[in-house]
Simulated assay, not measured.
Amino acid sequence: MNDHVVDRPSVSGPNRRRFLAATGLTAVGAALAAATQGRAGAAPRTQRTAAPAGAFTVPAEDAPHTRTWMAWPDSTTIWGRSLLAGVQADIALIARTVAKYEPVVMCANSASAAKARSMCGAFVTVITSVPVDDCWMRDTGPVFRTDGAGGLDAVGLNFNGWGNKQTHAKDARVAAGIASYAKAAYTSAALVGEGGAVEQDGRGTLMATRSSLVNRNRNPGKTQRQLETALCDAYGASKVIWFDGVNGQDITDDHVDATSRFLAPGEALVQMPLASDNDVYAKDARQQYRILTESTTSAGAPMGVAQLQGPDYGRIRSGDPEFLASYANYYVCNGAVISAQFGDTGADTAARATLGRLFPGRTVEQLDIDRLGTGGGGIHCVTQQQPRP
């Protein structure tokens, strides 16, 4: 499963799931997008020394937030004129919903800031000092870290448009711009990647797909071990659990955050396909589940793995067989879990109940964001947390 996930035939516009055709990627670019290194099944998951006390680390997503960062899309070149309005409505809905629980700052271009303010409402702060190309703040924004002693800094993952598949001149500068606005010291990681490509438990363990990061379109010439070191340095972690992933089928090369998530140190969640589903994403999800059940944390504890059942494609609102609906692409904010619903009433209800059980004390909000999904994304994709120091 990928994190930019949804495809509906009823709405016109470019489709991120079929990006190779939609962007006119050259033969060379397509070959690079398909090339990965070190894809040896459940290959060794090496472990490094844990970060010392007081070092900067990326907290788990359920740690208290200062604010949520988002970005306002306004490009008809990227979205198409008819789809853009619906995507903006979905972004505004997500922003208004998160703003019920914590402050939201929306980065917008000057020409579209007034529309963003009108659609998002008075409880969302819209700024124009950080221009954007698109709305995928999870991938373009900084990864904030804390040191447990009141310190905050930020790391940029050197966003390159998912391997130069989309224009990103502005988005490449978003991480540094937000860090400056937040008055956080900023450094660049020693790799190219995206926030949606990495999950962290806040206690030293990461998970990621090789297809997205051990890929020449992001990190030519770098081995899995070199990238693991760079990830651990950036996140203040000591172990990476790797999945093979799915290469070249979506613009992200299969981000982990639509399939597998951390609930707590030693606890993970995987969205599972129906038993009858057997496409590449279903096989990917099953492999991720198997690998996690065989894994341990950075501290050596066994991993408990919960299952979140995905919907029945025959019952969701979309009739497109390529529609990949991810409940797991939820966002945890202060006091709430913001997730999607897809029109399969039984599965939607069950997903809400599962998330409520897994996140006791938090309100579960389910939103119809099919327009955003048509362009290939979900709620986690368009949000980025700034943790409290």
Rank of each mutant, 00 (worst) to 15 (best):
A63Y: 07
I127E: 10
R96L: 09
A172N: 03
M70D: 11
A89L: 15
T167G: 15
D171S: 12
M106S: 09
A122V: 07
D133V: 05
L152A: 03
T128Q: 00
V104E: 01
T146C: 09
G121N: 08
K115W: 02
V124T: 00
V174K: 07
L93I: 11
R145S: 04
R145D: 02
E61M: 05
L157G: 00
P52K: 12
C107F: 11
A122E: 12
F123D: 15
Q166S: 09
C135M: 08
K170A: 12
G163E: 12
I94G: 07
A108Y: 06
D90N: 14
F56I: 03
G151M: 05
R67G: 03
D171Q: 15
V174P: 11
W136G: 00
G163F: 15
M70G: 09
N160W: 10
A63F: 04
G148F: 01
W162F: 09
T68C: 06
D147H: 09
C120T: 13
A175H: 07
A85L: 11
H168Q: 07
A63E: 08
W79N: 08
I94P: 03
W136D: 01
T68A: 05
T66G: 13
A53P: 10
A55I: 11
S118V: 04
G80C: 13
A122H: 10
R67P: 00
P52V: 12
A92N: 11
K165V: 01
V174Q: 06
C107R: 08
R145A: 09
M137C: 04
D153E: 02
D74N: 13
T57D: 03
A169V: 13
P59G: 07
V132R: 01
D171C: 12
T97R: 14
N109W: 05
D62Q: 10
